[in-house]
Amino acid sequence: MDQTSNADGLRRIRRGLWALTGVAAVALGAAVLWQARTTPAALPGTRVTGEAAISNAYTLIDHTGRSVTADSFDGQWQLVFFGFTHCPDICPTTLAYMAQVMDELGPKAAQVTPIFITVDPARDTRDVMAAYVEALHPRMVGLIGTEGQVAEAARNFRVWYERTEDEAAPDGYTMAHSGYIYVLAPDGRFVDVWLEGDAPAESFANNLSTLLQTTGSSS
Rank of each mutant, 00 (worst) to 15 (best):
D2C: 03
Q3V: 14
T4I: 14
D8S: 13
G9P: 02
G9I: 02
G9N: 14
L10I: 09
R11A: 11
R12V: 05
R12S: 08
R15E: 12
L17Y: 05
L17W: 02
A19G: 09
A19I: 10
A24F: 10
A24G: 15
A25M: 14
V26K: 12
A27C: 08
L33Q: 15
Q35W: 08
T38M: 10
T39K: 15
A42H: 15
A42I: 10
A42S: 13
L43K: 09
L43M: 13
G45D: 07
T46L: 11
R47Q: 14
R47S: 12
T49Q: 13
G50R: 07
G50Q: 07
A52E: 11
I54K: 06
I54C: 04
I54H: 08
N56H: 14
A57V: 12
T59I: 02
T59Q: 13
L60Y: 04
L60T: 08
L60S: 02
G65Q: 08
S67E: 14
T69K: 09
T69A: 11
A70L: 05
G75N: 10
W77P: 00
V80E: 03
V80A: 06
G83D: 05
G83K: 03
F84T: 09
F84D: 03
T85D: 03
T85R: 06
P88L: 10
P92C: 04
P92K: 06
A96H: 06
M98C: 04
M98A: 06
A99E: 00
A99T: 07
A99L: 01
A99D: 00
Q100L: 12
A109K: 11
A110Y: 02
V112T: 04
I115W: 03
T118V: 07
T118D: 01
P121V: 11
D124E: 01
T125D: 01
D127Q: 15
D127S: 13
V128Q: 08
A130Q: 14
E134C: 03
A135M: 05
L136S: 03
L136V: 15
H137G: 01
P138N: 03
R139Y: 02
M140H: 04
V141I: 15
I144G: 06
G145R: 08
G145N: 07
G148W: 06
G148S: 11
G148E: 11
V150Q: 04
V150S: 01
V150D: 01
V150H: 04
E152V: 12
E152H: 09
A153E: 05
A154E: 06
F157Q: 08
R158V: 10
Y161L: 01
E165R: 14
E167K: 15
A168G: 11
A169C: 02
G172A: 08
G172H: 09
T174Q: 11
T174W: 03
S178Y: 02
S178V: 03
I181E: 01
V183H: 07
V183Q: 11
A185F: 06
A185H: 10
P186M: 07
D187F: 09
R189D: 04
V191D: 06
V193P: 00
W194G: 06
G197L: 03
G197S: 13
P200M: 07
A201S: 11
A201E: 02
E202A: 15
A205M: 09
A205G: 06
N207L: 11
N207I: 08
L208W: 12
L208E: 00
L211F: 08
S217T: 15
S218W: 07
S218I: 14
